[in-house]
Amino acid sequence: MNCLVCRKPFAVPWSPATLLKRDWACPDCDKMLTPLNEGCPRCGHPTVDGATCGDCVRWLALGLDLTVHSLYAYDEAGANWLHRYKFGGDVVLARQLRDVLRATRERGAVYVPIPLSEERLRSRRFNQAELLARMIGPTEQVLVKAEVSSQRQLGKEERRHRTNPFAVQQLPRCGKIVLVDDVYTTGTTLHQAALTLRRAGAEQVSAVCLFRTLNKSKMRPI
């Protein structure tokens, strides 16, 4: 079996799952990403004994309460992974994290991916968040997004003071909505989307995010 990520051959231990699962990642590649376990209860950022982190305190002060389940730290390996997945277009890579994503599934929730603008979707060919959301559970395209410039170059303060680009198409019937996104940097995107949904009448809104940027790291924002 060839590894999904590094494409080198390696031995898969035999189990009944061997017959069912097609995409395997070798142990080395599996260990590359750093999972986030204990940390801020609202965004998963590592903190001292599970206190709420500074970013979240500021969001709470603005009256926006959103619990984001972050899965991995956005360190160097994470950035490389995401670059391959999102900008390189190697979509099958997401299968590596299938089990982890699936473990976050909740009963009776609808998974709503953060949308791309029409133009961006056409040039990229796929919505990276939607493909992740489909891996978790039932997905519905609730939000639409107007064309805005890319956030990649913006600083933290500029990001936070953008106008809300989201609008609700049609609210799903069920009560629980889980937003899905790929990276949580400042949280502006997710909080704006959650605010839009709440204003449209959604009762319970939470979020799942694949990567959480660590503060004071020298990573380039994506």
């Binding site: 990229r124 796929f126 489909r134």
Partner: peptide, 26 residues
Amino acid sequence: TRAYTCHHGQCRYCRNCLHLGRVCQC
């Protein structure tokens, strides 16, 4: 080549020549 969901539906892309820029079935 692997199946995935393109912006207009079912599609395939080639994993072998990603370094030359991705080609999709469409």
